[in-house]
Each structure stands twice: as C-alpha cells, then as structure tokens.
C-alpha cells in the first residue's frame, strides 16, 4: 500500500451494468490505494458485504433512451437505493452520477453539453465546502485536476432545488472554468446526508503516476473515516438522528465492521 494513502483497507463493490466501461479503471485505482474491490453484476442485489458502492462510468445500456434511464431499473438499483438510504456510502462517477439522478438519489439532471459535443479534457475543479463524506473537509477551497469525459454532463436543476443544494452544502465540486454549460459550473453534488456523491469528472483516471497525476486519490482515500464512524455508530447502536437504521443495513448478514481492516 502506498505511504500517502489511508491506513485502512476497505472493500468496495463496483457495479457493472451492461455497457459500463470504467469499472476496471475504478478497480485499478482502488487497488493502487490498497483497497479491495469486487465487481457487482447489475442483476445481483447483495450489497451488505461492501463498505462502499461505486457506480462507474460508461454507457450503461448504450445510454439509449436517456443516460442512466434504463440502468436505473436494473435489479441492483433497488439495493443501491436501500443501501444509500441507510446512510452507507455510494459514489457515482459520470454515467454513475447520471444513474443516481435517474434513481432520484441525487437531485437534478444531466443534459447534453452546451456545445452539443462529447468533451474529453482535463478540468480544474474547485472543492466546495460541503457536507460530502467522500472528501476531506480540509480540501475545501483547493483545486483538483481531474479529467472530464462525457456528452451529457451539463448539470441542471430548478431554482428551488439549486437554492436547497446551496443552503444544505450539497454542492461538492465546481468547474473553475465553464466546461459544459453546467448550472453554476456544478461538477459534483451529494445528497443531504453527504453519503451519496455524484460527479461527472473521472477521479479514477488520475490515481496512477504512470499515466499522469494523482489528484484523483483524494476521492477514494478519505471515505474510510465515515465508514468507521457508521460502523462504530451501528455497533453502539447509536441510532439517534434517524439517518442510520440498522435494519436497512442488513445487519443480520454481516457485521459491517467485519469488512473494515485497520492496517498495521
């Protein structure tokens, strides 16, 4: 395990829909960071054994009809929704973000880029002060270089939703320069609980020195704190605020603490 990453090895579930094409890249990045990662076929529904779930990029179901619109109805999504609603961590990257909005786990929608073209290029992202559990709060205000790669990344929501996102600290990432026409230059948002995070840029592409920079590591190396926190909450049955419900966590299957190995 690299010295600059976290000291905890997590077990990630990386969901594979027909047409996903970044799942291997995500697994490669997670391995580099010392995590364990398994592919979860879209017809599987068993997610309790994972510390966190990744919906990777690609073109699920060819992005036919509308990006993410078909994938949202894959059997695995019911489990992902339950998992997310139980407060457990879910990250959706690119097509994964689109699927999360289709599944209503995240607000708004992703429209076609304003220039009506696919865009693959580096992007400078400003980390906003947010409730997102996936990024270290200390990163707020800093700039990360992470590439974008999409045809439909133009974030949109109505004025009321935007106001709520702002008020609740749900805007996680903004493009430093207008990239695709996104409302308020939004590149990534989270849900109110901060456990569900969707972003259009591809952090898994910038985790490996051999192929570029490593700004993407920040996206996978902090979440362990939150996982430890909910594990500890569950263990102590500290279920006061209602955001965590031990029934939804399928605690009869596995004690989720069992998945978190603290490295020596």
């Amino acid at each position: 395990m690299s010295a600059d990453t976290n000291a905890v090895s997590l077990k990630f579930g990386v969901v594979v829909f027909p047409g996903s094409n970044c799942e291997q890249d995500v697994v490669h990045a997670l391995h580099l960071l010392g995590h364990e990662a398994n592919y979860v076929w879209h017809q599987d529904t068993e997610l309790a054994c994972y510390d966190a779930i990744v919906l990777p990029g690609g073109f699920s179901y060819g992005d036919y009809l509308r990006c993410g619109a078909v994938a949202r109805f894959s059997p695995v999504m019911e489990s992902v929704i339950a998992y997310a609603n139980a407060g457990r961590p879910v990250i959706g990257i690119c097509n994964g973000f689109q699927i999360l909005t289709e599944a209503k786990l995240l607000a708004g929608a992703l429209l076609q880029n304003r220039n009506l073209k696919f865009i693959c290029e580096p992007a400078s992202l400003i980390v906003e002060k947010s409730v997102c559990k996936w990024l270290d709060p200390k990163l707020a205000g800093s700039v990360l270089e992470v590439p974008i790669n999409h045809n439909e990344g133009n974030y949109f929501c109505d004025a009321k939703t935007l106001a709520e996102l702002k008020e609740n600290g749900q805007i996680v990432l903004r493009y430093r320069q207008a990239a695709n026409g996104s409302l308020d230059n939004i590149a990534g948002i989270c849900n109110r609980g901060g456990n569900v995070f969707g972003l259009m840029p591809h952090p898994e592409r910038v985790c490996d020195f051999a192929t570029g920079s490593t700004d993407g590591r920040a996206f996978f190396s902090y979440i362990f704190r939150y996982i430890l926190e909910i594990a500890s909450n569950t263990k102590n049955n500290l279920n006061k605020n209602g955001s965590l419900n031990s029934d939804d966590l399928n605690s009869d299957d596995n004690n989720i603490i069992g998945n978190v190995e603290v490295a020596q």
Partner: peptide, 14 residues
C-alpha cells in the same frame, strides 16, 4: 477532434 474522443479510458494512456 480528439477532445471529442475518450482517449484515456483503460487507465493506460501515457
């Protein structure tokens, strides 16, 4: 042109 092509997927483009 190449801005319209995904040229990085696969994590192997050096």
């Amino acid at each position: 042109i190449w801005r319209q092509y995904d040229h990085q997927v696969g994590n192997n483009t050096v």
